[in-house]
Computed example of a mutant assay.
Amino acid sequence: MNALKTLFAGAVLSALSSAVFAAGNPLSVHVLNLQDGLPSAGVNVTLEKQDGEHWSKLNTGTTNEQGRITALYPEGKALEKGTYRVTFKTGEWFKNHQAATFFPEVPVIFAADGSVPHYHIPLLLSPYGFSTYRGN
């Protein structure tokens, strides 16, 4: 019973520390593999901002053991209104897990209008399909 309490307390502290860390950054992402229901650790992700007809790279990151990047926006910068693209390098991830996929990458383009202080982009992923939405 004590081991269960310790495990639960550790999970709660981990979740809280992720939430506190993310609170200072306006953008986070989360990748879950629908095939096995587990977080997708090790997914490379790129963040870009649209500038006219071009995209400017702002940051990159790799999902942690929980499948999360809690702070994808460049540290110390305020989120500017505009159109952004988060690209999940899913082909690399599936190749590293010896699995085929139809999608070599998943770009998610969204408009940050400043109506919320934090944007969260979850990606539910399988080899031949994906889904995303504006999370919180």
Rank of each mutant, 00 (worst) to 15 (best):
S40V: 01
S40L: 03
S40F: 01
S40N: 03
S40D: 05
A41N: 14
A41G: 11
G42E: 10
V43M: 01
N44Y: 09
N44K: 13
N44G: 08
V45H: 01
T46F: 05
E48Q: 14
E48N: 08
E48L: 09
K49D: 00
K49C: 11
K49W: 08
D51I: 00
D51W: 05
D51S: 07
D51M: 09
D51L: 05
E53L: 13
E53C: 05
E53T: 14
H54V: 10
H54F: 09
W55K: 06
W55Q: 05
S56Q: 11
K57S: 14
L58T: 05
L58P: 00
N59V: 12
N59K: 13
N59R: 12
T60S: 07
T60G: 06
G61Q: 04
G61P: 02
T62E: 13
T63K: 09
T63P: 06
T63M: 06
N64F: 07
N64T: 11
E65D: 12
Q66V: 04
G67W: 08
G67H: 04
G67A: 03
G67N: 05
R68T: 14
R68D: 12
I69R: 02
I69H: 02
T70G: 08
T70E: 08
T70F: 04
T70A: 13
A71L: 04
A71P: 06
Y73D: 07
P74M: 03
P74V: 05
E75D: 15
E75F: 12
G76V: 11
G76A: 13
K77A: 10
A78R: 15
L79Q: 14
L79W: 00
L79K: 00
E80Q: 15
E80K: 08
G82M: 05
G82W: 10
T83R: 14
Y84P: 03
Y84S: 09
Y84R: 10
R85S: 02
V86M: 05
F88E: 00
F88W: 07
F88H: 06
T90A: 06
T90Y: 08
G91W: 02
G91S: 05
G91R: 05
E92C: 12
E92P: 14
E92K: 15
N96L: 14
N96S: 15
H97W: 00
Q98M: 13
Q98W: 15
A99L: 11
A99F: 05
A100W: 01
A100T: 10
A100Y: 10
T101E: 00
T101D: 07
T101M: 09
F102W: 13
F102S: 13
F103Q: 08
F103R: 03
F103S: 02
P104M: 02
P104S: 09
E105I: 08
V106E: 09
V106Q: 03
V106P: 00
V106K: 03
V106G: 07
P107K: 03
P107W: 04
I109Q: 12
F110D: 04
F110A: 01
F110P: 07
A112T: 02
D113C: 11
G114M: 02
G114Q: 08
G114C: 11
S115K: 14
S115T: 15
S115P: 10
V116N: 12
H118F: 07
Y119T: 09
H120N: 10
H120D: 12
I121G: 01
P122L: 03
P122H: 02
P122N: 03
L123E: 10
L125K: 04
L125S: 03
L125H: 02
S126C: 13
S126Y: 03
S126Q: 13
P127D: 03
P127E: 07
